[in-house]
Design a protein around this nucleic acid. Structure first.
Lengths: 205, 205
DNA sequence: GCTATGGTTGGACGGGACGTCCAATCGTGT
DNA sequence: ACACGATTGGACGTCCCGTCCAACCATAGC
């Protein structure tokens, strides 16, 4: 999951870690199966035999990269999750941070879902998503309900809704070349999620 | 996309259409690349040579299946989209119908996203999602804003939020063996999406 | 009943890519 | 100088894909 590198048997030397990162783009462009090991070797400058010396196979390289991305996401979201303020403040922070992460890690994030099936057996993505993304959301929502800054009936469902909103908004941001900034997107999403779509509750800042 | 069968060059005989459907489960279980053509031949009872007679390749079979699923989803959602009532009523109908569809077409729906990358070149999934899912949502939202049954500022963003909420809730429903029914899930999602999470607008039916 | 025509199928084949294996080389600590 | 692990080039064996073709039906028109 998010632990350093569970997928690698032999410890990967630091200098190689760096070079393996260059494989991310290739994976993102072609997907797991269309990516040739030789291509990875060329791009990273690491000989094929050496790659196999450290990784059992292609997908383990991908898993290694994905778990790194997950780790980075953990760092980004943890900051927002442990920030001071009301539950609502933290919720807003999480949403903004998450959207920002998607926007800045586009290819890899897309990969996370495109190759979900393949990598799922190596990294438990579902569990990772729950720990890294949903759990902090639930925590913020629970706190918000407690401190009065939010009104939450079903915390689990609310976390899913927020996550879904952010996910789809983020994906759209990646696909559509949009004039609107990430901040504007985050504002729109938050306005809806907080204010709701029913008329009696007018949209609110 | 949702048109009958754009991916097949030769018209596929009706009796074969039926048998090809049996390939769906194999794809859903193994993913595109782990699925062997021979396996498909065995499962469908259609000889390998015949499969290649009708389909240019493995992924075209998948594309064919996905576009069928898309077509079915179109039917299901169209009914909800054209139902009488306020914009809000239609929005609720769309959400319930969509969640129900996900719940009943689990494997194939999962496939739709797992193999997104591969099939995207054959069926334009993004365009299909927009036409089949997002457009009806936008329409309902727009009507709701007009007839006063909804309060919508940014229709596009709202449609994304609703879609994301349904998508993630649906996926969770597929993954987690849950005691809660689809209806209960839909209720929870709708309550949040309509009522919002801010405290001044209490949750509402 | 005969014969084109086109659908249907088995089986052989070439090619691409994966992952394995090994022997040769390199680097470094002792 | 030596030992030992890391590193690498290159040769295989294997799997599976997609192609090709020749043979085999089914049937519609003559």
């Amino acid at each position: 999951m998010t632990q350093p590198v569970p997928s690698v048997v032999r410890p990967l030397p630091a200098d190689l870690v760096e070079r393996v990162d260059r494989a991310a783009e290739v994976f993102a462009d072609n997907g797991l199966d269309a990516t040739r090991i030789d291509e990875l070797a060329k791009v990273t400058g690491i000989p094929r035999a050496t790659l196999y010396y450290y990784f059992p196979g292609k997908e383990h390289i991908l898993a290694h990269l994905l778990s790194r991305t997950f780790a980075q996401m953990t760092v980004a979201l943890d900051a927002a999750a442990t920030a001071p303020g009301s539950g609502r403040d933290r919720l807003e922070g999480l949403v903004r941070e998450h959207l920002g992460f998607i926007a800045s890690h586009g290819p890899t994030y897309r990969l996370l879902f495109a190759e979900l099936g393949k990598a799922a057996s190596l990294i438990d993505i579902a569990a990772g998503v729950d720990r890294v993304i949903l759990a902090p959301l639930r925590s913020a929502l629970r706190d918000g309900a407690r401190d009065g800054s939010l009104s939450v009936d079903d915390v689990g469902a609310a976390a899913s809704v927020v996550y879904g909103a952010v996910l789809v908004a983020g994906m759209e941001f990646l696909l559509v070349a949009d004039d609107r900034s990430v901040q504007a997107r985050a504002d729109a999403v938050l306005a809806i999620v907080l204010g709701g779509l029913a008329p009696n509750a007018g949209p609110q800042r």
